[in-house]
């Protein structure tokens, strides 16, 4: 074993050029997240939160610095191998759910399982199980348009965990939800972390969501300005 943290960013810089002007989104950022941690990331809009999540999930690559997840150098991986790596190790949850509207809840959950070597019946069992975890077995055949926002987000979480990834990346998962639905989502994330040992990296503006994480990071203009671990966590 290396002495690296489970998720580790070393001197990560990410820039975008917009209209000839260079925008430094992340500036030599360092971050260590041990396995099984549950981290909430807060910060003003445009401070680079989503960019961090994308880098960890291998959807984006840094201009300089290293991103490693479970001993894998994500940024150095050939582009062609990133999707397969992502399918095995990372589950994404988005603010706007991002379910495919033409598929049922169950079919949405089945999507990432198509990329696994599991048999058809094994896939179905895992999809059923994932829906059971989020408490939506009875809505398996519903389309997203037939579900409430909270239910959609629960399906999205089921989809994110269907392949049993180590890391869950959630970008404002309660941002579009009412308080009750948001609390349900937070309870599910909490169970995924405490009972199933998932490492969770969650961006949020919601103080209640931040309070349910074990650790709270604050980001401003591409640099971490605060790192607190919750009492008793």
């Amino acid at each position: 074993m290396s002495n690296k943290a489970y998720i580790q960013l070393d001197g990560v810089t990410k820039k975008y050029s917009r209209g000839g002007e260079e925008l430094v989104v992340l500036d030599a950022l360092d971050l260590k997240v041990p396995e099984g941690d549950y981290v909430a990331l807060m910060g003003p809009s445009g401070s680079g939160k989503t960019t961090i999540l994308n880098l960890v999930g291998g959807l984006d690559i840094p201009d300089s610095g290293k991103v490693s997840v479970a001993d894998t150098e994500v940024a150095n991986m050939p582009k062609s191998q990133l999707p397969a790596w992502r399918a095995r190790h990372v589950g994404f949850v988005f603010q706007s759910f991002n379910l495919l509207p033409v598929l049922t809840a169950h079919e949405n959950v089945m999507l990432p399982l198509q990329l696994t070597p599991l048999s058809k019946s094994e896939r179905k069992i895992q999809a059923d199980f994932a829906l059971e975890i989020v408490g939506l077995s009875d809505r398996a055949s519903h389309r997203p348009s037939q579900l409430s926002g909270g239910q959609e987000q629960r399906v999205a979480i089921a989809r994110a965990i269907a392949t049993d990834p180590d890391v869950i990346i959630a970008d404002e998962p309660t941002g579009d939800l009412d308080r009750n639905s948001a609390d349900e989502i937070l309870q599910i994330l909490d169970r995924l972390n405490s009972e199933m040992g998932k490492t969770i990296l969650m961006v949020t503006h919601d103080p209640a969501a931040a309070a349910s994480a074990r650790r709270l990071l604050k980001l401003d203009k591409g640099t971490l300005v605060s790192d607190q671990t919750r009492e008793g966590a």
Binding site: P83, A84, L115
Partner: peptide
């Protein structure tokens, strides 16, 4: 295009 992004986040190419 959005669906393409979602599928890629799930691990599709």
């Amino acid at each position: 295009l959005k669906e393409s992004g979602i599928l890629q986040a799930l691990g599709f190419t």
